[in-house]
Structures are given as structure tokens and as C-alpha cells.
Design a binder for these strands. Structure first.
Lengths: 255, 255
DNA sequence: CCGCCCCACCTGTATATACAGGCTAGCCGC
DNA sequence: GCGGCTAGCCTGTATATACAGGTGGGGCGG
């Protein structure tokens, strides 16, 4: 018995190394949804850890929705759920990176403009006030997956326009400048207009989720954004006091 | 040392009992946000379990956002259990009545059926278990505005099928029988299939919001519903501490 | 050939123990 | 009086071990 010792200082914890390896293999496609993952005892042999450590790695990945486990059978990769959101606003770049893919932003337009009635209303500014505007297409592995049109309140984030959106998403920048204290989402199914179709490379009648999102920081509206997701899912959950938020079953296009 | 033994058959697992007690004390207000929770070794003494078991209970509650922990200091109740009140599920009949319109339900199908894989998974029942099913079209001023296909867990609401859905919506009945403690929504933009198109009287390529909703009452899944809304909006908001989420501007099909 | 039982493998839970490292209060020496 | 050291409490991680209960396959007996 090799009496496996604590990881040397600076090394990642054992259970984290196991989680990372499994996540890597999923990201690289070596493990596909539905595939069987190494059992606890196989991980014990492979990593030289105790079963409790392997158990913890797998159990946490189950909590996180990555794996499904059932006693007597084994551990399996969950069906991919690209959930756009879960009650907190997530950064699309992070989500893409978590899936092990490459994020790129194509900047279509950035500049100043005068608020029309809709924009002024949404940002709670007066008609004709100067607002900042950006139109960005987010790509996952060079495939467009989100059109983001954003209007920003210059009183809250005056330096917005000088951000390098290739290295930092608008959302990332704004949450750094002004932490979100409230948000509002309005979700609709729409037929995208020709411009959006072009950006996303969609056929004519492909339905899109359109999310209209406003965020506040204290009393002020920071920004409103129009987000178009082709065929995406938009997920949220909540619980009142206890209650178990369980993983996800999709209940597909039944029959 | 009392050589604490496995819990007797039927009893809840030790770590679950600890979690439940803490959650109960939070629910009853004995523990307020920011309060210090018993340390692992105090729980060891109080429950007669090993520290690993107490650790698991606290760690999972941290994962679930209920507690915050920091080494050397202790474990504390997290501020704010996200504002679920704002995210309440509303009854479509009430909404229609609030708009001053007339609500009517057209009952397409009601009955028992065996759960297929998708339904069993969603309701957390075994494959082939009997579930109750209903398919209802909701009308606003005789215009169809929602298709509601619902699967109900008979263990929770055995009398579901004998409800008169003309005078009470399924949702209304179910919330009376089993108060909701958690829910999950998955929203997608879809092209509805021919059946749904027929019920809603839609043209071919009209995009629809499809909401897949599950609700829990305690540990049990009460129901899962597939809701189709033609061109509807689906709105949610939340705030973290204060922050004013104001009414809505739509920022329509701009340009 | 069919059915039943048992065994091998898997996860779920629990225990006792150990070492690490963060944090704080209090003591002790200068 | 003040600064530094230490003891004690706390969480974080890891190990070896044990028993439970679900699942499926193979072998054996009728």
C-alpha cells in the first residue's frame, strides 16, 4: 500500500484534479453525454486516492449537473444542457469556456447615440439623452451563438466605450464597474429580423429566443440589452426555503 | 465512545437530519442571516455523528447557497435567500381576469397513462408508473392563448383527475393541494408542431415560447407542464438587496 | 430450457483519524 | 505598553475501513 500522501503544497487538491480531468475529457469530447464514467474504484486505482475522495469528486460533479449517478449501475455523463442562465446572470464567455470551447466576439458597432423613446424609457433617461451603444456577435468555436445589442447609461459607466470587447465582454466590464443589485428579464420567442438572421447565419423561419434584460446598480439603470439566442434554452430555478432543486430532464419534442 | 451506528432502516440519513434541522431553524427564524451556525465539532457532540458527516451537511448547505463558511472563523447563514416571492408562478386565469377579459378552458384530453422515459424522469418516478395527464387550451375572450400539457404525480395529488377544470385551473388546484416549495423553468423558442398549431390557430412558421415547468412540494415533484405561448412574453425579475425593478418598456422590433 | 439464487460490482452512507492552515485571544518578555 | 509568540478553535482535505442496498450476469438445479 503506497500510503498516498497529501498533495504537495501548491498542487491542486486531489478531488479537484479528478474533477478537472473528467471535465477536460468531456470538453475534448472523449466523454460524450450518456457515456459511462470511471467508477469510484477505478478512480482509486488510477489516481491513488481513497474511495471517499473519488466519491467526493463524482458527487460534486453530480450536484453541478455534469454527471448522473445511480447505485448499482454506474456514473454517466449528463445530457448536455446549455442553460443560458440560472437566476443569476452569467457571462456568456465563461459559459463557453466552461464547455471547453473557444469564445470570440465580433464587434459590429460601437458608439454614442441619442436615446429614442424606447431606449430613454428603458434606461430611465430623458428623450434625446446621449447613451452608449454596442452591437456584438458572440461566437463559440467560430459559430455565432448570440447577438448582443446593448445600451449603456453613461452616468454609471462612462468608460464603457473604451473597453476592449475582444478581451472582456460588456457584461463582464459592467458588473465590475457597477455591481448588479437587480435585474429584469423579458423573454420572447420571435422570428429574427434579417439583420439578426445574417449575424447568426440562420434560415428564414428559425425561431429565436429574444431576451430583453435590464440591470440596476442601486437606484440607477446600468444597461439594457437585447440578446438573441438561436434555439437556446433559458433555464431558471428557485426554491423557497428548502426543497431540492434537482438536475434537469428536458422532456423533448415529445412524440 | 458510543460507537454510533447506522441509522435504523427508514430513518433519514444522518447528514440529511442535520441539514433539515438547520433549514428548519432558519425557516422558523431562530437562525437569522449572518448568524453563526454550530461548528462541525458542536454538531458532532449534538448529533453523535462523526465530523465527516457534520462536514458533509454543512458543505452541502454551502453549495446550496444557504450557508457561508470560512476556515478559522466559522459557518454563517447566508444573507438573503434569493427573492422567490418576486418569481411567483401566476395563474393564467387570474391574469386574463386582471386584463378584464373572459377566461375559458377547452379540455382536449384528461386521463391516466403510463410514464414514458421522459415523463418518469421529469417526475422522478419509475418507468411505466401511472401518472395523470391533461391537455387543456386556455382561451382569452374565446381566442386561444396557451396550450397546457401537464403530467401530475398521483402520489401527491391523487384527486387531480376529478377536478372540474372549467371552474378551476390545474395550477390553481395543485397549489391548493400541495404548496410549491421549488420550481424550475426551462424556456425555449420553438416552431410548434402541427397539433399545437391547430390548438392555437397559428400559421406555419409562427414562433412560440415553450416553457417546461416543474414544481416541487417538499421532496416530491408535483407536476411537470409543457406550456406553449404564441408570441407571448415571459417576464421575471429579481433583486439582490434593494434596487428598484420598475415596470416595463418593451424596446420593440427596433427600427 | 427456464427460473432462481448467489456473487461481483456499483453507489450511498458512516466512522475514526490525521495533518494542513486560517484566525484570534491572551500571555509573556522586553 | 507594545509586539511577537503560542494555544486553541475552526474549516479543508485526505485516508482506511465498513456495512447497506441496487443491479445484472452466470451458474446450477428442476
Amino acid at each position: 500500500m503506497t500510503k498516498a500522501v497529501k498533495p504537495a503544497a501548491g498542487e491542486a487538491r486531489h478531488y479537484i484534479r479528478i474533477k478537472e480531468q473528467i471535465l477536460t475529457e468531456i470538453a475534448e469530447g472523449k466523454l460524450q453525454p450518456g457515456d459511462r464514467v470511471s467508477s469510484e474504484s477505478e478512480l482509486v486505482a488510477a489516481f491513488g486516492v481513497s474511495r471517499m475522495t473519488a466519491n467526493r469528486a463524482l458527487r460534486e460533479l453530480m450536484f453541478e449537473g455534469v454527471l448522473k449517478r445511480s447505485a448499482g449501475i454506474g456514473t454517466f455523463v449528463s445530457p448536455k444542457h446549455l442553460d443560458v442562465d440560472l437566476l443569476q446572470i452569467r457571462n456568456i464567455a465563461d459559459e463557453i469556456l466552461e464547455r471547453g470551447h473557444k469564445h470570440k466576439a465580433a464587434i459590429v458597432a460601437v458608439g454614442l447615440m441619442k436615446a429614442d423613446a424606447n431606449v430613454a424609457d428603458a434606461l430611465e433617461l430623458t428623450l434625446g439623452a446621449q447613451v452608449m451603444h454596442s452591437l456584438i456577435v458572440h461566437m463559440e468555436n467560430d459559430q455565432p451563438i448570440q447577438v448582443e445589442e446593448r445600451y449603456v447609461n453613461p452616468l454609471v459607466a462612462p468608460d464603457y466605450l473604451s473597453t476592449d470587447f475582444h478581451s472582456m465582454t460588456p457584461h463582464e466590464y459592467l458588473t465590475k464597474v457597477a455591481p448588479i443589485t437587480a435585474f429584469e428579464h423579458i423573454v420572447q420567442a420571435v422570428k429574427p429580423d434579417t439583420a439578426v438572421r445574417k449575424y447568426l447565419g440562420l434560415k428564414n423561419d428559425y425561431p429565436c429566443l429574444r431576451v430583453f434584460r435590464r440591470t440596476w446598480s442601486g437606484e440607477a439603470v446600468v444597461t439594457c440589452a437585447l440578446l438573441y439566442y438561436p434555439g437556446a434554452q433559458y433555464r431558471l430555478e428557485a426554491r423557497s426555503t428548502k426543497g431540492p432543486p434537482k438536475p434537469v430532464a428536458i422532456l423533448g419534442e415529445k412524440k
